[in-house]
Simulated scan of single mutants.
Amino acid sequence: MIRLYLVVFFVLILLSWAAPWLRRFGLGRLPGDLHFRLFGRQWDVPVTSTLLVGVVAGLVAKFV
């Protein structure tokens, strides 16, 4: 179970790091992605993008 949490944590870190590059392809702007301003800072929570990347990664892992 801890392995799943670590994988999700690292995927979220990678998505937040690569967010400007991925926005050109539409990730980070999907209907389930949250964007809000709190404490004077812009926060992005890519829920739908994370699920989409997880499904694609799962399909790749299944066929490789």
Results as ranks from 00 to 15, higher is better:
M1K: 07
I2G: 09
R3T: 09
L4A: 08
L6K: 10
L6V: 07
V7T: 11
V8Q: 07
F9V: 02
F10E: 08
F10D: 04
L12Y: 10
L12G: 13
S16C: 06
S16D: 10
S16M: 06
A18N: 03
A19C: 07
A19Y: 15
A19K: 08
A19N: 11
W21Q: 11
W21N: 05
W21R: 08
L22D: 08
L22A: 14
L22I: 10
R23Y: 07
R24I: 11
R24L: 15
R24E: 15
F25Y: 12
G26V: 05
L27I: 05
G32W: 04
D33G: 09
D33V: 05
L34W: 01
H35E: 11
F36H: 10
F36P: 03
F36N: 05
F36R: 09
R37Y: 12
R37G: 08
R37E: 14
L38C: 10
L38E: 13
L38N: 07
G40Y: 08
G40Q: 11
R41G: 07
R41H: 12
R41E: 14
D44A: 15
D44S: 14
D44Q: 15
D44E: 13
D44K: 04
D44N: 14
V45P: 03
V45D: 05
P46T: 08
P46Q: 10
P46Y: 12
V47I: 12
S49M: 01
T50D: 01
T50A: 15
L51D: 00
L52Q: 05
V53C: 02
V53L: 11
G54W: 00
A57N: 00
G58A: 12
L59K: 03
V60Q: 06
V60P: 00
V60S: 07
A61Y: 02
K62I: 11
V64E: 05
